[in-house]
Design a protein around this nucleic acid. Structure first.
Lengths: 173, 173
DNA sequence: TTGTGTGGTTGCATTATAAAACCATAGGCC
DNA sequence: GGCCTATGGTTTTATAATGCAACCACACAA
């Protein structure tokens, strides 16, 4: 008989609501956390990346990314729920469905660019990176993303601060 | 005698090398995947975010983020291994250690800005976002991140393409 | 009607994450 | 020094997520 050292919940019978659950950032007030809630897992951004490069079919994502079909299905569902992808009834005639990016989905483009440029600049083996993002018209590499002030000055992290958002000021109703 | 808790490996005899493991993007040639390999999990970017806003101590991260100490420890170790954080021997006199951002760590700033701006633009409840990123000098909100061509033209996703990186052209030895 | 490809779901093993208990030092206090 | 507490973790245990393979449903073709 072990000294069952741990009383645990002691909630021997009740509802058993000690759910551990992978903490959600849904109600968090930090916009970074809120973004990660939607696309902060291992696969979502890669799916979006494929979608941005033109893939739309389940099988296309699956073969390009080499991921398990069940997680792909789960991720696609989550992305649709988050309004990042939408299901379109067809496109090539066949009665299958497709997954296309919504404006919200296409809006992730700067995130992907930022990730790419971070790898290009700091990766330990940048020579293993196969692709370059180029301006379509000239074919030349793009510049680094620029953060500018209202008046156009180029900003670094040190030039910025976080400020509390002013209260929404509700009308007295 | 404990019921030897878990068969675990059970590597009874043969190969048993069917390890499932959470697929790694380490060797992937896509820079986005390579970035996600380092900071693509649930907590790393939030830890980096706290570090960028000045936190350095284990307890500070733990209390600000409200995460379990064991995962915080694991994440900090991983971030140090990836060269994003470094441990500094002290700073306030006490013999404890601190975690400070390396240049590679500070280089993630555009990623965080991109995530923030994506939330600001597309979140379903943007009124719940508490903070605004402002220019420190003027106190006014910053502009959206800008992607520009070599010659300064502002680019959208549709104006860009991926090109294969030219071979490194090794000298004949 | 059988076959095949696409687009999934289900079952099971393994891994990661979470929460809480535990532990090892460091520093302060007497 | 001996005791206390705070800090900074590690260990233990439980639950959720992931990965793989097998299975299944339907569309379409022969």
């Amino acid at each position: 008989m072990q000294p069952h050292k741990r009383v645990m919940g002691s909630r021997a019978n009740a509802k058993d609501e000690a759910m551990v659950k992978r903490t959600s950032f849904e109600g968090d007030s930090c916009p970074v956390a809120r973004a990660l809630e939607a696309i902060g897992d291992w696969w979502s951004l890669l799916i979006i990346r494929e979608a941005l490069s033109g893939q739309r079919r389940f099988g296309e994502f699956q073969s390009k990314l080499g991921m398990a079909k069940n997680i792909l299905a789960a991720r696609l569902r989550a992305l649709v729920d988050h309004g990042i992808l939408a299901t379109a009834p067809a496109s090539d005639g066949s009665a299958y469905q497709e997954y296309v990016l919504t404006p919200k989905g296409r809006g992730t483009f700067p995130i992907l660019v930022a990730l790419r440029q971070w790898s290009e600049e700091f990766d330990n083996h940048p020579e293993e990176i196969a692709t370059i993002l180029v301006d379509r018209k000239k074919g030349r590499p793009v510049r680094k993303l620029e953060l500018r002030a209202d008046d156009g000055r180029l900003l670094t992290q040190a030039d910025t601060t976080l400020k509390l958002r002013p209260a929404p000021r509700r009308r007295s109703a």
